[in-house]
Design a binder for these strands. Structure first.
Lengths: 127, 127
DNA sequence: CAATACGTACTAATTAATTAGTATGTTTGA
DNA sequence: TCAAACATACTAATTAATTAGTACGTATTG
């Protein structure tokens, strides 16, 4: 049996992104979307989506003709736990060094930090 | 042939962390260190370290008895590119949403942000 | 020096990840 | 209606990742 919430692998994440974007989608819809970027077989997408269902990330229901899949969790929540795992794995759980790296890489500006500062304050209020 | 700088996988990163810590190390040293945390075979460590050498992350030289392995790149540099890849993969390259997640997760405090702010300023000066 | 520990090369087993084919049944439009 | 398109279930091939075993040689030490 598969564990309850196994991590999303690379290709699985790609598919989830499409489904989140579309809110709900058939295999064909996802297939068409992915085709715009690269060559892939219809059945490959189907297999992946079924695995995602087994993993608990997607839910399917009978639609007009084909199954319609939809995410079981919002994107933000899933990504949050991916970040948490990454921080655990790479930085042993502390986010600060990650920040340092982001800054060094010039991905972050002072303006970004102001944004963040604000959001911290409001988060604190709502606690 | 292997690509020049393939990404580090989970277990490979664990081994690299040990070697970075020790600065240079034999298979046995890494093996002993990993043993403290979990059961693993000596040859497993050796295999992994040889793969890391093929991938260009480690360099080996003949030591007194055994080969001595050392990192070809500093930890900070490797981790920086792991962060970059993660940001690309999960956030399509923009770091800001990553920040938002870190904050929401309360991994980040205002104090952290002050630290970062300072480091941005000094980075700017040295540009 | 002989037994034991150590080191390396080579091989291999297992599992996960990725991609896709085939068989078969349903729907639909010309 | 019937051929083409579509859908799904089932199976499978390929590659990567992870873990480890075996054979064999060298070093060490009691």
């Amino acid at each position: 049996m598969r564990p309850a919430k196994p991590t999303l692998t690379g290709q699985e994440l790609e598919i989830m992104k499409v489904v989140w974007k579309l809110e709900k989608a058939t295999v064909r819809q996802v297939y068409e979307t992915l085709l715009e970027r690269r060559r892939i077989a219809y059945t490959t997408v189907m297999t992946m989506m079924n695995i995602l269902e087994q993993k608990g990330y997607l839910q399917k229901q009978q639609g007009d003709r084909a199954y319609v899949y939809q995410p079981t969790q919002p994107q933000s929540q899933v990504i949050r736990s991916m970040v948490r795992e990454f921080v655990d794995r790479v930085f042993n759980g502390s986010a600060e060094p990650l920040l340092a790296h982001l800054v060094e890489d010039r991905h972050l500006t002072e303006k970004d930090l102001d944004e963040i500062r604000k959001s911290i304050k409001s988060a604190r209020k709502s606690r």
